[in-house]
Structures are given as C-alpha cells and as structure tokens.
C-alpha cells in the first residue's frame, strides 16, 4: 500500500495520493483502487484514510454549522440569506417569532431588513433542498456591532487551532469578541477600533499563511509587536 507524498505536502487536483487499501476522505476520490486528490491543498495520511485540506474552496452548508449570512430578500413567510455558498438559505418567520405567525399582522421588514447581517445555524440541508436556518438559540441573531472579515472557509479550523489554541490566543491578546462563521465570515467586535484592527490583521495573516507551521507563535509575536507600536504612538500624541 504505497503512498506517494509526505504528510502535509502540497498537492494539486488529480495527483495520485495512495494506492491499495485506503479510504478516500475529504477532497479525495477513489478509482480502481487508487486515491486521487480533487483539490489544491495539503495531503493528510491517517491510518487508512487519506484526505486533503483544501487551500482554495467555497462553503458547502453542513447541518449544525454556525454561519453568518446577509439578508438579500424578504418574502411572505421568511427571509432569504446569502451565506457565501452556492445556494441561498431560508430563514422562516415562524422560527424567529416562536408564536403563530400571521402575514397580515407581522411586518417582516421590521424584524430583519435587507442588508442585515445575521448569525444563524443550519438546521436542514441536502443536495435537493436549499439550506434552512434557525436563530432560535442564544448567541444567534442579528449583528448590531463589530466588523466582518472574510477568509477562505476551509481555513476556519486553522483559525480555531488545535483545541482552540489559536482563537483563544486571539481573544486574549486583542481583547475582542470573535464569532466564527463556518462559511468563512468572521465577526470581530472589540472595545476600540484599534483592537478590532489588530484582530483583523491577525486573521488575515492566518488566512494567508494557513499552510505553514508554527503559525500561532508567529501571530502572537506579531500582535505583541503591534500592540507595543500602538502604545508608543499614543505616547507620542
């Protein structure tokens, strides 16, 4: 059962990753006992599973994912949200109002208007049906403050880090509240614009350098250096 690359090596679509008794995981497929990559990414050999961590990808909804969406249409019984995926997502009015919903009485525009950004969770999705969202949980709902950064959706796990090391470091060092949408949108809200700017800078760096090692340390260093710089600038004023 030969493998043809080292762990974490860069591969392109169509590259032969392994032969024989392996199972094709994410971004890989099997044909005639051979496993090929389907994406540009980093190959990952586990016991029997071979998968590729994509470097360029778009978001595909998964049930239970927390996502950030933008209202693009208000209908009679709910809202349509752009969730950065190939499909528009539906948010039903009955879900938001949690009481019998009457189209004559309730003005949906006054709840969520077009252009509003919403943190929601995917409750239902398969390939024959557009994703269905819910906001019926604490911490979900309309976004009222903060800034949005866009990253490649596949790099969200890198942004979280091993057991949340990266994200907890980011929160600690910048003092910002950070909400990760699995669809690649990240909400950053801090006490000052300066804090937010710092967090956004760090997130952009992580997005850019996701495929390198020792990233957490480098980002920590960058933030600390920047923080020093900011303090210095304030002194000058």
């Amino acid at each position: 059962m030969p493998t043809f690359y080292e762990n974490k090596q860069l591969v392109t679509p169509g590259d032969l990753l392994a032969e024989g008794n392996y199972v094709a995981g994410e971004n890989a497929y099997k044909e005639d006992g051979k496993i090929y990559s389907t994406q540009l990414g980093l190959v990952d050999y586990e016991e029997r599973r071979v998968h590729v961590v994509a470097l360029r990808a778009f978001y595909i909804p998964y049930i239970e994912d927390t996502i950030i969406g933008k209202v693009v249409d208000v209908g009679f019984s709910g809202w349509m949200l752009d969730i950065n995926a190939p499909y528009l997502a539906m948010l039903r009015a009955s879900d938001v109002l949690d009481r019998p919903f009457k189209p004559q009485k309730n003005d949906l525009f006054s709840i969520f208007n077009i252009g509003d950004l919403i943190i929601a969770k995917v409750v239902a999705y398969n390939r024959t049906r557009d994703p269905l969202l819910t906001v019926g949980e604490p911490s979900l709902g309309k976004i009222t403050r903060g800034q949005i950064v866009e990253v490649t959706p596949t790099k969200i796990p890198r942004l979280i880090g091993r057991q949340g090391s990266m994200i907890s470091m980011l929160k600690r060092e910048t003092g910002c509240h950070i909400t990760l949408g699995q669809n690649g949108l990240v909400l950053v809200s801090g006490k000052t614009l300066e804090d937010e700017r710092l967090a956004i800078m760090a997130i952009r760096k992580i997005d850019q350098e996701a495929h390198t090692s020792g990233l957490t340390d480098r980002v920590t260093k960058m933030i600390q250096k920047e923080k020093g710089g900011v303090k210095h600038a304030q002194k000058d004023n």
Binding site: T12, P13, G14, Q39, R56, F58, T152
Partner: peptide, 11 residues
C-alpha cells in the same frame, strides 16, 4: 477552476 477550489478529477 482549480484556483476557484472546484473539486476536479484531474487537471
């Protein structure tokens, strides 16, 4: 297409 992250059998 590969740059867009679209899954492909091969280039």
């Amino acid at each position: 297409l590969a740059d867009a992250g679209i899954p492909m059998r091969d280039l």
